[in-house]
């Protein structure tokens, strides 16, 4: 194993994060705070409690998920797209490192960054709403797994993207709608029956539901399904990345 390669990439990526601290950490925290103000305080004060939880608190898990998922995807995508764009990928391809070692470096760095953002937003949330976390261990587990699995997805997006527009496409056109429609701001039980069924095909529902359960002990789907869904999603992403490296798709002629 060439773990030094993984570590080198990880350090390199983290250095990039610190170099661009303002846009990479401050801006997602700021935009999430705006959600708290608008949805939690302004609109939320006119909305009844959802299943016994104040609306302001109810949206906290969803908001964290929204940031963490979008950040994971865009960070990991940019992390691997940039070397492709500026040509430094030649070094990765000629290095004595396996796809696992290379992917791990980029994905763990992106996941670390979005985990940090998630935790900062969580801490921020305590300033806006009354919040208790029923299952802290599971909360952290879901958070870490989400950061990791969506960083894997981002890595795939970064390899797939041929230009900066495509790089933005997936986070904007796919991930954000899936999260908004995944129950970030509402309980699935609030939807009409037909939409309740349709929404079950949205993988993010399982994430948000599981994550919210770890806070309030209530869930839209059984917690077991949430765990299975996220593990399945992680496995799928790893498998796709394995195929990408074996065939050299979009990276090696």
């Amino acid at each position: 194993m060439n773990l030094r390669a993984t570590w080198a990439i990880y350090k390199f990526e983290m250095a990039r994060t610190f170099r661009t601290l303002l846009q990479s950490v401050v801006s997602p925290v700021l935009s999430t705070s705006l959600y708290f103000v608008v949805f939690g305080a302004a609109i939320g004060s006119r909305i009844d409690e959802v299943e016994g939880v104040s609306y302001g608190a109810f949206i906290v898990p969803g908001l964290i998920m929204l940031s963490v998922v979008v950040q994971s995807v865009s960070n990991a995508a940019f992390g691997i797209y940039f070397p492709k764009f500026i040509g430094t990928i030649y070094e990765l391809l000629s290095a004595p490192a396996s796809f696992l070692e290379i992917t791990a470096g980029y994905v763990l760095a992106a996941a670390t960054k979005s985990l940090a953002i998630g935790i900062i937003i969580l801490v921020t949330a305590f300033f806006f709403v009354d919040l208790t976390i029923l299952h802290p261990f599971w909360m952290l587990t879901f958070l870490v797994l989400t950061c990791f699995s969506f960083s894997l997805l981002g890595f795939i997006v970064g390899i797939w993207a041929r230009n900066f527009e495509q790089l933005q496409l997936v986070p904007l056109l796919l991930v954000t709608p899936l999260i908004f429609l995944g129950g970030a701001f509402y309980s699935v039980s609030m939807l009409p029956p037909v939409w309740q069924t349709i929404t079950l095909f949205n993988p993010v529902v399982y994430l948000v539901s599981g994550f919210r359960w770890s806070f309030f002990g209530m869930a839209d789907v059984a917690i077991g399904w949430s765990v299975l869904a996220i593990l399945g999603f992680t496995g799928l992403c790893i498998a796709i990345i394995g195929v990408i490296f074996r065939t050299g798709w979009r990276i090696r002629a």
Binding site: R4, A8, F12, A15, A95, A97
Partner: peptide
């Protein structure tokens, strides 16, 4: 093997010494 490509492919914002250290790590050397 060391490879010096034809195009000047460098991470623009990185310091010289950091990018050289990175290469060493990438190739598995302490």
């Amino acid at each position: 093997v060391g490879l010096v490509p034809q195009e000047i492919n460098l991470e623009p914002f990185e310091k010289v010494i950091t990018t050289v250290r990175f290469s060493r790590g990438l190739f598995g050397k302490p």
